[in-house]
Every structure is written in structure tokens, then in C-alpha cells.
């Protein structure tokens, strides 16, 4: 049984000019201990998907449809009171900017103790000892002395380590990491990702890693979901998505990554920009930019479908029989 199953998730933002659909019919699953990467451009809906799972979408945004199932139990419709026991305890969260995610007025030890005592039956002394152990685990030097230090006394990288400790300290089964390294110095990014991956492996925690950094995904993830304009364009094992992308958008994305191993005159570029939520084109949202576009793409929206590899892709190129003929025809 998968640890987390998201089925046909739909997130809407009602605005004065009509309802915007930020996440549209998104389905995926995460197995226990697995690392699922979610990539896409800004505004593709990847962060909102993560926020929707833990029900922390900024109002007026709301889950308008679909199901989120954790360990066989629906969590998208339970009261917020019960949701509180899911957050932290079963699903941890890591946010983008460690400079703003820690409460500046409380010592990091207090924030750890508070989190653990909310979810686990621990005495003050046990909780404090565990807080120190967690700080050691995430590699804070002199943890025993620094447990009473305040967030501003740490560097950005160190703070993100503290955030990781906070996300993991109640031993959740899943961590949703929303761009955990984007705000960090490039030299520290790799360390923090490696730390997150190591800790999760040791504790058997699955990760949903939201990022726009394909490099991070390629190194860390087991499987990857590529999002475009609020939908999943392609999902599959990381190696297949990176090396043998089945969706033209993923292909373009991979082609735009510079490589050290071989020299290219010019990186591939996907023409145009991702549509805004207010004017998503009919049919496949990617069709105006797609180099392989054909008639069906303009009128009918593709759902995820099997391809000739292990990936699923939302692209008519992979439609059985009829689609194959049309591809041949179009080419």
C-alpha cells in the first residue's frame, strides 16, 4: 500500500475575475521511504500541491476536489483539529526560506521541545535531551551548548538544518520539502540535501521534494513528477524521466540544463512562457509551445497515459493506436 495517495486533486483560488485553478486533476502516490521529486517552473502548482496535502493553502485558496489518502485514511476532509495530529506527527514540512521559518523570539531548543511534546509523551528533560540529539544529528556543532541559542545566532545553512530537525523530530513517515535549498548559498545546498536524504533513509521517512532544480532531483529522487500549468505532465523513475523523457516539455526542460561533460553551442530553449492561470489554453496546456504539436493537442486535453517506458506522460504522442498513426501522419 502506498504511504500517500493523491487522487484527482484540484485546488482553486476564487478571485474577483473568476476562479483560478492552480492545481488541476493531479494524481500521484508516494511509497514508504521513497523520494518523489516534483519539478516545474514557478507557478506550475508544485508548492500548492504540497501545501494542499497538509491543508495549509493560503485562503481564499481551497481544495475543490479529489482525495488525499495517507496510510489508507483520507485526510483532505477530516476536521482541522484532527489534521493537527497529522501535521508534524505524520507529515513533516520544510519550507523554502530558513531565515523566516523559525520564530525569532524562541530558542531553537524550545521550538524543538514544543514540537516533540505536542506529538510525543515526553517529559521536559527527555524532550530536551532529544532536542540536543536531533541537533547533533543534523550536524549543528556544539549542540549541547547551542540548544538555547536563538535563530538569529545561526547562519542560513545552519538554520535550515534546524528546520530539518524540527520537521523530523516527531518521527513523521513523510516530509514535504518545499524548495528546501533555494534560499541557501550554492555551496551549502548540496550538504543540506545530502543531510536530508541521509536522515530520511535512516529513519525510513519518505520525501516529497518540491524544487525547480533538476540537478537536485537527479541526485536525490527515486521518482519524479514534472508539473506544468497545474497538471502533471510526466511522472516516472528519475532515470527514465531525465534520460528518456516522453513528454516534449520534459525533453525541453532536460535540454535546457547545461552539462559539464559535453560542449553544446547553445542550450535548447522552450519558446514562449508558461501560461498564466487566467488564460490556460484549451486542449493540452503546453500545445502553443510544443514543437510536436498536432491537431488533437489543440482540442482535447490529455491525461497521464502509459508510454513505451515506465513513465506516464500526459501527451497525445503516446495515445494508443490512433495517436500513433496521427503522430506518423503529422511527422
Amino acid at each position: 500500500m502506498p504511504l500517500l495517495e493523491v487522487k484527482n486533486l484540484r485546488v482553486e483560488f476564487p478571485t474577483r475575475r473568476g476562479t483560478l485553478t492552480a492545481v488541476d486533476d493531479v494524481s500521484f502516490h508516494i511509497d514508504p521511504g521513497e523520494v518523489l521529486g516534483v519539478v516545474g517552473e514557478s507557478g506550475a502548482g508544485k508548492s500548492i500541491t504540497g501545501a494542499a496535502i497538509i491543508r495549509l493553502i493560503e485562503p481564499p485558496g481551497r481544495i475543490a476536489g479529489g482525495q488525499v489518502i495517507l496510510n489508507g485514511r483520507r485526510i483532505d476532509n477530516i476536521p482541522l483539529d484532527e489534521m493537527r495530529h497529522v501535521r508534524g506527527k505524520q507529515i513533516g514540512a520544510i519550507f523554502q526560506d530558513p531565515l523566516t521559518t523559525l520564530n525569532p523570539l524562541y530558542s531553537i531548543g524550545r521550538q524543538l521541545v514544543e514540537t516533540m511534546q505536542t506529538h510525543l509523551a515526553l517529559s521536559d528533560r527527555e524532550a530536551r535531551a532529544r532536542a540536543i540529539r536531533w541537533l547533533e544529528e543534523v550536524g549543528i556543532p556544539g549542540a549541547a551548548q547551542r540548544v538555547d541559542a536563538y535563530p538569529h545566532q545561526f547562519s542560513g545553512g545552519m538554520r535550515q538544518r534546524v528546520v530539518i530537525a524540527l520537521a523530523l523530530c516527531a518521527e513523521p513517515n513523510l516530509v514535504i520539502a518545499d524548495e528546501p535549498t533555494t534560499a541557501l548559498d550554492v555551496s551549502i545546498q548540496a550538504q543540506v540535501i545530502a543531510l536530508l536524504k541521509r536522515l530520511c533513509r535512516e529513519h525510513g521517512t519518505a520525501i516529497m521534494l518540491v524544487t525547480h532544480d533538476m540537478g537536485v532531483i537527479a541526485e536525490t529522487a527515486d521518482r519524479v513528477a514534472v508539473m506544468y500549468a497545474g497538471r502533471i505532465a510526466e511522472i516516472g523513475p528519475v532515470r527514465d524521466v531525465v534520460k528518456h523523457a516522453r513528454h516534449p516539455y520534459t525533453e525541453g526542460l532536460m535540454g535546457s540544463i547545461p552539462a559539464l561533460t559535453h560542449k553544446v553551442a547553445r542550450l535548447t530553449q522552450i519558446e514562449g512562457a508558461m501560461p498564466r492561470l487566467t488564460d490556460i489554453p484549451p486542449g493540452c496546456a503546453f500545445h502553443p509551445r510544443c514543437p510536436k504539436v498536432f491537431e488533437r493537442c489543440r482540442v482535447e486535453r490529455p491525461d497521464l497515459m502509459p508510454t513505451d517506458g515506465p513513465n506516464l506522460a500526459a501527451c497525445w504522442l503516446h495515445a494508443p493506436a490512433r495517436g500513433a498513426r496521427e503522430v506518423g501522419h503529422a511527422a
Partner: peptide, 24 residues
């Protein structure tokens, strides 16, 4: 963000509102 993060850690409303928010 730190209030959102406090909620994401599953703290009670009371702790979030009166501990984390009010003090700030």
C-alpha cells in the same frame, strides 16, 4: 512563514496564536 511553519508542525491553535503570534 514562522506561523505557517508552527502550524505545519501541528502545534495547537492556542500555542500558535498566543505563544508564537502574540509574542511577536
Amino acid at each position: 512563514d514562522y506561523i505557517k511553519f508552527a502550524r505545519a508542525r501541528g502545534l495547537s491553535n492556542r500555542a500558535v496564536h498566543f505563544g508564537h503570534a502574540l509574542k511577536n
